[in-house]
Amino acid sequence: MIERHHSLDGIELPDLPWSDELNWAPIAQNVDYGLAGALIVQVGERRAGRPITLAGDDATNYCSRAVLLQLYQLASMPGKVMVLTLADGRRFDVMWRHGEGAIEARPIEHKIVQGPDDEYNVTLRFLTV
């Protein structure tokens, strides 16, 4: 059996669960009333904008500081479009969701100086484009 992991532009990510996978609807609907009181309903397919939040819990799915620094470097590039590949093989073109805190990281062990192998609990927030 081949072991697969999530990756972002070739950076191997921890296998964090996609926490909001089923909280998004592919159909958008706008309901309004016209000046004469008629109901106006607009319905369409969303082609992008799906949130992808990869979030572990405090006991699993750690990320090393070295990987985290690579992710912060990607997050510092405005408008950067990346390829997110999930462990199940699905691929998405994504951007960071900066407005919601693109990367959230908490060290597992609090130290004055963190080394490259020290582990963090992370949440990564993306938006499909």
Rank of each mutant, 00 (worst) to 15 (best):
R106M: 11
Y72C: 10
L13I: 06
D9H: 10
G99A: 15
I11Q: 10
Q70N: 10
E104A: 11
L13S: 03
Y62N: 07
A75E: 12
P17K: 02
L86T: 04
P14L: 08
L8Q: 06
A105V: 10
R125H: 00
A59K: 07
T85P: 02
R47P: 01
C63Q: 02
R106D: 10
H6Y: 06
D57K: 06
D118W: 00
L86A: 01
V67C: 11
W96Q: 03
A66T: 07
I40F: 02
I103C: 10
I103T: 14
A66I: 05
G34R: 07
T85I: 07
V122S: 01
P26Y: 04
A25I: 06
D9S: 14
R91K: 14
M77Q: 15
P51R: 06
Y72I: 04
Q114P: 00
A28Y: 14
E104H: 12
Q29K: 13
D118S: 03
D117S: 14
L22A: 05
G49I: 09
L8S: 14
W24R: 03
L86D: 01
D57C: 10
E104I: 12
L84I: 08
T85A: 15
V94E: 13
P78Q: 00
E104V: 11
Q70Y: 09
I11E: 07
P26N: 05
E100S: 15
C63D: 04
F92W: 14
Q29V: 11
H110V: 08
I40R: 15
Q70E: 15
R106N: 13
V31N: 14
W96R: 03
F126P: 01
I40E: 13
Y120W: 15
P51G: 02
T53Y: 02
F126E: 02
E3K: 13
E100K: 14
G10I: 05
E100V: 09
W24D: 09
L16E: 03
D32M: 13
L71A: 04
E21Y: 10
L13G: 07
L35N: 11
L69P: 04
Q29Y: 05
L68H: 00
L8F: 04
I52L: 15
E109Q: 05
A105C: 12
A105W: 02
I11M: 06
I103M: 08
P51N: 09
L74Y: 07
P17L: 03
E104P: 01
E109V: 04
Y120T: 05
E119N: 11
R50K: 15
R65G: 04
G79D: 08
S19N: 03
E45L: 08
D15F: 02
G56S: 12
I112N: 12
R4V: 11
A38T: 10
L54C: 08
L22I: 08
V43N: 03
F126N: 00
V31Q: 12
Y120S: 08
D88V: 03
L84P: 11
P116D: 11
L54R: 06
I40A: 06
W18T: 05
L74F: 11
R91C: 13
D9M: 09
A59M: 08
A25P: 01
E45S: 07
M77N: 12
W96C: 05
L127D: 02
V67A: 09
L74N: 08
I27V: 15
F92N: 02
G10N: 06
R91W: 06
N23F: 11
A28G: 11
I112K: 08
A102I: 02
L69A: 14
L35Y: 01
L68K: 03
A87I: 07
H98D: 06
R4D: 12
L22N: 12
